[in-house]
Every structure is written in structure tokens, then in C-alpha cells.
Amino acid sequence: MNLLNTFFNIPILIETFPLLLSGLLVTLEIGITSIIVGLVGGLFLALVRLYGAGPVPFLAKIYIDIFRSIPLLVLLIVVYYALPFVGIRFSPFVSAVVALTLVSSAYTAEIFRAGIEAIPHGQFEASQALGLSSRHMMIDVILPQAIKIVIPPLTNNCINVLKDTALASVVAMPDLLKQATQAQALSANPTPLIGAALIYVALLWPLVSIVARLEKRFGGEKRA
């Protein structure tokens, strides 16, 4: 009973729930923005890495390797606390989105590249022989086939981005985790933290089970 009162105190949960929900909203804002920008950036990076001219593919590879190597927390702290020293000052929201997007686009680029490379060479040749431009070849022939291959790993990447939004709390972003710790301090009770954990699980569990099903159907590759 005491345990329940400590860790799952219903009145406290009800009291702090609006705060947690406002945090969830911020988490979703950061997460969804980063996912969308990361998708666009990742597709762009994949295309220039595969088909860019001159040094462009090499530069894209360097970018991708760097942002897959750097710990997100380190990157976030650099963006928020170090960049101001050179006069670049981002709000907590922008800092979080920038850091998440830089990393997400690197992973997404590799996912798209693997998807495009999995398309048989004959599809490219048939498109070229018909006179399709590179743009139409990509839009009408290659990408629609690659999409099926990349959906499971892309969904996986979305899960990772949504999870990683919790790191934004270190730059004072009032996301779900930050609000939960705030509420915990105010009520002197850990229940809001448990509530936040449950909300994360409720948000991501469906995505996790979708990925599992998709991977069974198409076979997919996990983010390392």
C-alpha cells in the first residue's frame, strides 16, 4: 500500500497529468519535426551520395559517418552550449531539432541508399533505355520500389528519434521527461516519472509492434 502510494499515487498523477500532457505535446513537436526534416534531408543525402558529381558523394559520406558516430547527447550539448561562443544561439527547441535532425538524416540516408541499391540494375537500364530522365526514373520507377524496402528500417528510425527527444530535457526544453521531473520535484513524489514512462511506452509500443510485423513481412535492417 505504501509502495503504491509512493510510486503510483493516483491523486498526484491526476494533479500532474495536465503538465505531463503538455510535455508530451512538446516531445511530439520535437520528434515529428525532426523526423520529417530528417526524412527529406536523408533522401537528399542518399541521392547525392549515390549520384552526386565530383567530390559531392565523398562529402556526403563524411557527413553521414560523422553524424552516425557522434553521441546525440554530445551533439545536443555542443549545439546548445558551445555554439553560442561563436555567436550562434539557438532556442532549446531549435537546438533539439537541429541535433536530432542532423543525426536522423544521416541514418535515414543510409537506409534510403540501401533501399535504392537493392533495386535490380535492370530497372535502371530499362528506364534509361526508354529515355526517362534521371528524375522520372527515380520518381516513377526506383523510389516506389525502394519505399517498400525502407519502410521497416525507417519506422525503426522514427522510434529512435522519438525516444531521443527525451535528451532535450538537458537543454531545459519542457518536454515530457522535463515536465515529469519538474512535477516530481513539486509533489515530492516519483509518480509523475512513472506516468511519463508509461506515456512513452504507450506512444512507442504500437510503433514497435508495427516494425516487428513489417520486418517479418519484408525483412528489415535495424539501426545499430
Partner: peptide, 9 residues
């Protein structure tokens, strides 16, 4: 082509 290379989608 020998291998047809139709667009499967």
C-alpha cells in the same frame, strides 16, 4: 532485354 526488366510495381 533478356531479363524483361518490366516495372513490377
Amino acid at each position: 532485354f533478356q531479363s524483361f526488366n518490366l516495372f513490377p510495381h
